[in-house]
Design a protein around this nucleic acid. Structure first.
Lengths: 256, 256
DNA sequence: CTCAGCTTATGAACCCCGTTCATACTCACC
DNA sequence: GGTGAGTATGAACGGGGTTCATAAGCTGAG
């Protein structure tokens, strides 16, 4: 029955248009100015129609999250793809996510906001599952890196499951994103270039897990080279329109 | 002029009563059910009066944060107080914060929610400064531990400022709290007792910074003993009414 | 005691949304 | 053409944050 299939396709297309419109509004005017009526109007629909797709505003927010997660994962996967050792791949994952957070601050803020208890529990359960499912690759990718390292003898066994080991770098990265995002904190402590700091700490952390060191984590030049190397493979993804973009710390512009 | 002073005192007292009422409502009915009208009514005031103290709902939320921060800091300070080495003090800070998050989940969720872009920027600037100021001890405590360690020769120099070094353990702890709070994530990866995992990773991280190890981070028994030791000095703070409370991982109850 | 002047409290009214629902429309199928 | 399931509409509803004109209380002076 071709009619039914067409219907479904149209439904999915419309949903995507709603999501895009919502995303655009967030990018343009901030999370605070996301209104259901405006999203519907932007797609030339009445407000009620929106509620055939999303049970509530929170539901819409989480839908956007699930939608954006795909892109986030893709960027990370691509960054890790070109690295050889387990350690390099782990670092690449963190750098990619960090770049994503820098380049798409609104999306990243949305991730934080939506994973808040208030929003999370106001959405429908199925939508929550969607978000979790969409984010599954994140944890799996990190754990896979550990697993591959163990298999190839690249890493020493830790008596911990790959996922448990993976939680360390993952938490460190998330936490640093948080601190960076919490405006004021970094200025408070006069910490410039927090993302380079993240990389340094990540290296130190891997050292602690006795992953063989590539170079001294305190070697600033080597660190920069590594970041640039990873970034080079990512800028097409992250800056489609940009030409000649290079790694530039978010605070670098501020210093005269 | 005694009148003026009395006025100010009354003002402060009333503000505190508002804050307490709001906190109670959050504890009782969750963040979603915090309504300005109800807070005012709980203190036998009209709604409008609330707006003489707090410019908006977000302002009130941030005020609660600043208020609660004091308690959070106090618990951490107390935990670190009884430890001798730099490494133990650093661990104690993390454990204390972790316990605070477990024992006061609502407060902790509020911290997360309020540091969200949406809430943060809807509050008044002076209130935001309040929150930052109230949280300053957090970063300073962590950095102080590093500084003391360096001064006493307890720690090797890292070519990094104490605050920069401190950001590592700090971010790791925050990040782990986040992941734990993001419901579903841990079940997804079958990770039980995430807080013990935090401790393990913290030890591994300190290893990486070449802080001399106390024991093998993978030694589960030693880890538990250390956690219990730190907790013992904290339960009076965290469970005023509780008698005979002991450390118990949040997931321990679930397993039959 | 009394009046002026300032501070604070009041709660009804305002307004902005998110959400719902009865109605009308569309269109594939008989 | 008739039928019914699916879909769109937009006015109306309701909750709740915010404001404001008014009233009440308090202080200090005369």
């Amino acid at each position: 029955m071709g009619t039914r299939q067409r219907r479904l396709r149209e439904l999915a297309e419309r949903e995507q248009r709603f999501l895009d419109a919502a995303r655009e509004q967030i990018t343009e005017h901030g999370l605070l100015s996301l209104h259901m009526a405006k999203v519907a109007r932007a797609c030339d629909y009445a407000t009620g129609t929106l509620y055939q797709h999303f049970a509530s505003k929170e539901d819409l927010l989480l839908a956007i999250c699930a939608d954006q997660a795909e892109e986030r994962m893709a960027v990370m996967a691509r960054a890790a793809q070109w690295q050889t050792g387990s350690r390099e791949r782990m670092i690449a994952l963190a750098v990619a996510d960090m770049l994503f957070a820098i380049r798409h601050p609104d999306h990243f803020r949305l991730f934080q906001y939506a994973s808040t208890e208030v929003i999370w529990h106001a959405a429908s359960p199925s939508r929550r599952d969607n978000v979790l499912e969409a984010h599954r690759p994140l944890g799996d990718m990190v754990a896979q890196v550990v697993q591959d390292g163990l298999d190839s003898g690249d890493l020493p066994p830790q008596n911990m499951s790959p996922h448990a080991v993976a939680l360390g770098p993952w938490a460190l990265t998330e936490g640093m994103h948080n601190l960076v995002n919490a405006e004021g904190v970094l200025d408070f402590y006069a910490l410039h270039d927090p993302y380079r700091l993240l990389l340094r700490h990540l290296h130190l952390q891997l050292n602690g897990m006795q992953w063989q060191p590539l170079f001294d984590p305190l070697d600033d030049v080597a660190l920069t080279r590594q970041i640039s190397h990873i970034c080079a493979s990512l800028f097409d993804d992250l800056c489609p329109e940009g030409t000649g973009h290079r790694y530039c710390s978010p605070t670098e512009d501020r210093t005269p």
